[in-house]
């Protein structure tokens, strides 16, 4: 079955079983490898991406639900490499990743969080991001989310001026 949607601003059509998890379509049909497979059960968050601005764990979202929608993955989070999304900039500033495998999922969750809660406290971050990291980057993730929120605020101030 043909399913059309936009991914990172680009229109695509894939011919696939409509129940195929969006994750596999993004990774294997569209070759965007930044969205990771971790558990297949929406438990770990490594496959997190945005569909029409909402956060989803794409391992458990059949591709048919993306039809005619806008999908954003880690590759499309920043406008370009010189103008990083506040979350990716903060991740750079705090030197967050270790193995790096879970980080795209965390960053997608963080990007959504700072939209919902523009000035998150530690507690807000702890309660709202339930992704799993094995390397133990947790302390840096909390720091980086707060930093990202600040960067986003200051960008907003700049663009308002």
């Amino acid at each position: 079955m043909n399913i059309s949607f936009k991914i990172n601003g680009k229109a695509v059509t894939v011919d696939t079983d409509p129940m195929t998890p969006l994750l596999w379509v993004v990774r294997d049909e569209l070759s965007l490898k930044g969205t990771k497979y971790g558990c297949g059960k929406a438990l770990c968050g490594a496959c997190s991406l945005h569909v029409d601005g909402e956060l989803y764990r794409s391992c458990s979202l059949p591709v048919k639900y993306a039809e005619n929608k806008n999908v954003t993955t880690i590759e499309g989070l920043s406008e370009n490499e010189n103008e990083l999304h506040p979350v990716q900039q903060a991740w750079m500033d705090i030197n967050v990743p270790q193995c790096g495998y879970c980080q795209p999922g965390f960053m997608m969750a963080a990007a959504k969080l700072i939209e919902e809660i523009p000035e998150p406290t530690d507690q807000d971050i702890k309660e709202n991001i339930s992704n799993i990291c094995r390397c133990g980057t947790h302390p840096r993730i909390i720091k980086a989310v707060k930093k990202a929120a600040q960067l986003k605020q200051s960008q907003k101030v700049q663009s308002d001026e």
Partner: peptide, 21 residues
């Protein structure tokens, strides 16, 4: 020093074995 693999790991460009085709 920041990690030399920082940028690819932040941009989602780092390729792991399971990503390889």
């Amino acid at each position: 020093r920041k990690r030399i693999d920082l940028k690819p790991k932040v941009m989602g460009d780092a390729i792991f074995a399971i990503d390889t085709e």
